[in-house]
């Protein structure tokens, strides 16, 4: 075997650069996918807490799951505390989650008998609107919502 055959050519700078770029792209894509899956799980967890509180009639966790602006709107329009006001609202216990959309800090959960909208806050996902019915060519009509 000749010396030339034994000696392997050093990898070119272009090839090394391409591999590094590919690694960075794959790493970024994997991280992004992982982060998105985590966000979906977190949003789903908030929906579960909200629905469980609705089913069992527990007002405190129900109000805690609402976004600040939604809770404020509810209290102002009812002129009562959230725990009292939420009792008068017709928010149905909605069953299982059929579909979940997450885009950035916003999400929509379509359940068997209701649709919820959520937003991400520093403390986690909160429900911005509940008791929502779709309308043709218009925003959903929601029983409980923020501004």
């Amino acid at each position: 075997m000749s010396r030339e055959k034994q000696r392997r050519p050093p990898p070119s700078r272009v090839r090394t650069g391409s591999r590094a770029l590919l690694t960075v792209v794959l790493l970024a894509a994997t991280t992004a996918c992982g982060a998105l899956a985590e966000r979906r799980d977190d949003a789903l967890a908030t929906v579960t807490v909200f629905e469980q509180a609705l089913r069992t009639g527990q007002k405190e966790p129900l109000c805690a799951a609402l976004a600040p602006v939604t809770r404020e709107e509810l209290e102002q329009s009812a002129r009562a505390s959230c725990e009292q006001a939420i009792e008068d609202e017709e928010v149905p216990a909605a069953g299982a989650v059929r579909h979940l959309d997450v885009y950035g800090d916003q999400a929509r959960a379509v359940l068997d008998h209701d649709t919820l909208f959520l937003a991400h806050f520093p403390g986690g996902w909160k429900v911005t609107a509940a008791g929502c019915r779709p309308r043709s060519e218009q925003p959903y009509q929601c029983t409980v919502k923020g501004r």
């Binding site: 959309d101 929509r108 937003a119 925003p139």
Partner: peptide, 15 residues
């Protein structure tokens, strides 16, 4: 698409 849908959801509209 993602930015538009984020805005849609903020306005309580379907993505």
């Amino acid at each position: 698409t993602a930015a538009y849908n984020e805005q849609q959801l903020r306005q309580l509209e379907a993505p």
